[in-house]
Design a protein around this nucleic acid. Structure first.
Lengths: 358, 358
DNA sequence: TTGAAAGCGCTAACAC
DNA sequence: GTGTTAGCGCTTTCAA
């Protein structure tokens, strides 16, 4: 592979100055047509590929946006895959993909392409170091971040340098641009459904707090209970911890051992709900016959589960698109007032709550 | 948002030269610990975010890899979404996502993160111009491209400049690095299944050729027929065109009108198969009762379809990972011999071929 | 162990 | 309409 030709090479070959070459690509209208054609021909003959680094350095913007996401079980997964025999496929049941963040990511990508931005996607996981985030941040003009993908202090340091939009409510009204959904109303809706339609009164909430969006969901859960005149717990039955699914599984296992199951498990997310269903079914408990289970997110795996998972669907693609839209506006107006957009969610009744199969 | 601090600012504040600042980040071991701490403190206080553009320009590599993908119906989709009322969600049935390319993309991302590369994702569609591809190519050290996402001539021009790996067999053994699956064996396997297990002998192949991987699938289809002593068509029943699904739908509609349906439609891809099932069902034809249908890919939507789609699953994540692995090796050894890796596929029997529900 | 200085390839004044 | 030129922020050789 020969050394990449530069503006100099192209200018040389076309018999013009480098400025003319640059203008030919950036401001075609400012170059005489005949000249432009000569330059384009030279560029084509040489296989000229403009360097984004040089351009970015020269004009102070990269023309790219990034989403910082995180991969569920990424580390474990990465270790497992290479060892599998040829045909094996850990994603065959779509439990690991696509999840909430993957659909948001798609929205980000589609919107970036539509608006002429390049998209970079950064991968977080529990072990994400500041270096990794800074590396991504240094490559783009703006950054969208999913909840829990970046430590708070790192996030605030980055926000001071480039536009950042969070895909969740910033803790304690920390300000900053963000896009969210109405978590509280959504969770309240499923909970009310369980109470009023299925006449279930002993409900437990499963899933980590320590995250503003989950807190809002728990709040919705409690509101529904109180509104129905039922006792509302002060805390989720399973909470916190780095691995919500494991935490929930352990809790359910304990309840199983005590023979003290509720009538329904209201889970903070679909993955938690699916894990809980696994545990129950392994223990021979019928869902929804003996215990109902509900989730939150609306991922594909929930639809494929048996029984199909009743959940609250977030408009993930739209969330991603909105994040990009906000970033682009923020880049144009760095000092405007913080923007916040909230989307509605949708109750999706399937079988795991006790509703009949479609 | 204050102007981003540079090495100069950090050096200034730390009372050292810019070289020392650079070394502190790139070659920490070459800087005395005390000095390093001073520099790091200064960087942190200033909120220093290294510029990837500057670094990329200086050392001739970006540290990023890209996947060039394309979005199914991207254009139409993009126009539709913004007009939908709040709760509406065009992806709710997962027909548009995740598709084959989305799972490959995931593999690319996971592997890039694991290997310390940043990932960029480029979006193609039917209207992809060379400019768009060149823009992406100019931002990275290597590029993975999905089949049919980039015009051949553009592809070869790019390949001359940066490492490129194709996720399909290059046409006419054009050489170049690539990763594929055993399309022929996979399609032969489904076809034989229809013939030997379900005793179906009148089969039609639906889906565009003009793509090496689809050609291989068609070949596998013919081989199975001939091996069974059945007549093998020289051409697919529906073929070519920019929109395979539409093409197939039209063809099926015509057959429907003529009352000349085969016993099975063997489709080149899952999306084609799902479209065909839609058309048949809309016409009141029972699948698989009156006509069997099979796909190829193994996307999520096939599992969710009723009847569930019999198909051949490709190890998409692994394909993506392999592409990245090859790129990284190629970057290290630009002039080595072209690499080609082929993965096996897996026959997935579900209901649309006539097999009983799981 | 640290500093000085020469680029990396491009953009955009500004001059012609 | 086109050319000259001064950076953009960083890496890296070479000296000190």
């Amino acid at each position: 592979m020969a050394k990449n030709p530069t503006v100099y090479d192209v200018a040389n070959r076309a018999g013009v100055s480098i400025a003319t070459v640059s203008f030919t690509f950036r401001r075609p209208e400012r170059v005489k047509e005949s000249t432009r054609n000569v330059v384009l021909a030279a560029a084509r003959e040489l296989g000229y590929l403009p360097s984004a680094s040089a351009r970015g350095l020269a004009d102070g913007r990269t023309g790219a946006l990034a989403l910082f996401s995180f991969t569920y079980l990424a580390d474990a997964h990465a270790d497992v895959v290479p060892q599998l025999p040829g045909g094996a496929d850990p994603n065959a049941d779509f439990r690991l993909f696509p999840l909430y963040m993957d659909e948001v990511q798609r929205g980000v990508e589609l919107e970036c392409w539509r608006r002429g931005y390049a998209v970079m996607v950064g991968g977080g996981s529990k072990t994400t170091s500041e270096t990794v985030v800074a590396d991504i941040a240094g490559r783009v003009d703006g950054l969208a971040v999913l909840p829990r993908s970046i430590p708070d202090d790192v996030l605030s340091r980055i926000s001071a340098r480039i536009p950042v939009v969070q895909l969740s409510t910033p803790p304690h009204g920390t300000g900053g641009d963000h896009v969210t959904v109405d978590n509280e109303a959504g969770m309240r809706a499923v909970t009310e459904h369980l109470i009023t339609v299925h006449r279930l009164h002993v409900l437990q909430f499963l899933g980590g707090l320590h995250a503003s969006d989950i807190e809002a969901r728990f709040k919705g859960f409690r509101t529904a209970l109180r509104t129905a005149g039922l006792p509302a717990p002060a805390k989720p039955a399973a909470n916190g911890g780095a691995d919500w699914e494991a935490e929930a599984a352990i809790r359910v296992g304990a309840l199983l051992a005590e023979g003290d199951l509720p009538q329904a498990f209201v889970c903070a997310t679909d993955p938690v709900a699916l894990t809980v269903m696994d545990v129950l079914q392994a223990a021979g408990i019928a869902v929804p016959g003996q215990v109902a289970v509900t989730g939150f997110d609306g991922i594909a795996a929930g639809r494929m589960a048996r029984p199909a998972l009743t959940t609250v669907r977030q408009p993930m693609e739209q969330l991603g698109r909105a994040a990009v839209d906000i970033l682009i506006k923020r880049i144009a107006d760095p000092d405007g007032a913080p923007v916040s957009r909230q989307f509605p969610v949708q109750l999706v009744l399937r079988e795991s709550c006790g509703c009949p199969p479609a």
